[in-house]
Design a protein around this nucleic acid. Sequence first.
DNA 1: TTATATACTGTAAAAATATACAGTATAAAT
DNA 2: ATTTATACTGTATATTTTTACAGTATATAA
Lengths: 205, 205
Amino acid sequence: MKELTKQQTKVLACVEVYLNKTGFPPTRAEICKELGFKSPNAAEMHLRALEKKGYISIQSGSSRGISIVKSQQSFEQTGEQMPVIGLVAAGSPTLAEENIEKRISCDPNMFSDSFDYFLKVKGLSMIEAGIHEDDLVAIKKTTDVKNGDLVVVRLEDEVTLKYFKKTNHSLELIPANKDFSTIEVDLREQEAFVEGKSVGLIRTH
Amino acid sequence: MKELTKQQTKVLACVEVYLNKTGFPPTRAEICKELGFKSPNAAEMHLRALEKKGYISIQSGSSRGISIVKSQQSFEQTGEQMPVIGLVAAGSPTLAEENIEKRISCDPNMFSDSFDYFLKVKGLSMIEAGIHEDDLVAIKKTTDVKNGDLVVVRLEDEVTLKYFKKTNHSLELIPANKDFSTIEVDLREQEAFVEGKSVGLIRTH
DNA sequence: TTATATACTGTAAAAATATACAGTATAAAT
DNA sequence: ATTTATACTGTATATTTTTACAGTATATAA
């Protein structure tokens, strides 16, 4: 998608804001009034440029015939674009851009608790908890977890999604698959970092 | 909210469909063309009635100045409050207001395919497919289903979520739990209504 | 029988709107 | 020094659109 000039960005934002506020697109004159232009042709030219670059489409001959093709600020709508992070074998699931597989438009409060990102599940270790490969688990970044919570824990360079159980100096990371065994960590010997806990799950059929 | 007449319902639906398709509301003339009226005043009168009853608001003097206040079919929007319907023992999962348990703010296009509502799962018949009690299954209203699809089917007054398999005159509704048995329907003897199919799932932990 | 509400047709005019054309100004690129 | 792209002003007009007004038809309620 082609880059927008500063003014084109403003005009696109103006159209989107107007649309959100009123439910229908603005006229050329209304865009001018909003952005301080004195000629409807100013708006017209920017709209044409936006159409040529594929951000909007214009229904010729129709009043207010503007529709948004590619929104600049789709996340400003009802829901946000929540990042999906692959559960890679090594490294922690950071929110750095390079780890984000894609984004999904949804409400961060759609589950009982808010969440920060989706973790894409690899493997079958939690299958008996109804968590399949490629399911997206909604993770809330926190270290405040209780026994029995489904948590994301990092050990050395490995990140896993397991049930959490802590007893004195020992931490158990319990899978939900009888073919897998519990990971036991002696906290006096090895560090374990709780990255967050699951507050929900989504799956595409 | 006041009741709508049949024609008012049609006009409101027409506006919403147009809005979803084009991104902006229709003119009086376009409503007429769509619904077969021969005078723009026909549309005008219905719009006024819809405004008086609080379903839309009309920006006087503006072209296409219609905005939806209370949608008949809010599930058709984007980034909206998607209804959650309980899988009740009897009756079909209609979107009538009284069947909607709550609404969840999310994008109707968050899964591979768009969907119309969430169905709240009751029972354990699909547990081996990783579908638990109280999971919300995203349902797309369609009768276009293939063998192997996870579908919502109504038999008499009962609604179930099962895997779909059709062979000649027989329909099999297959559970994913070895403690449950397949429902077999002879379509020459009994009617079966496909309400829709699952395109995704969400669960709150 | 007479209202009353619903549901339109048909026409017309005023207002809103898109959009073409002719310019001006400025900064960056060639 | 000249072109090119961006970013406008200002005007004009054909077209679109709203919206008022005058009717017609039909079913239902009083």
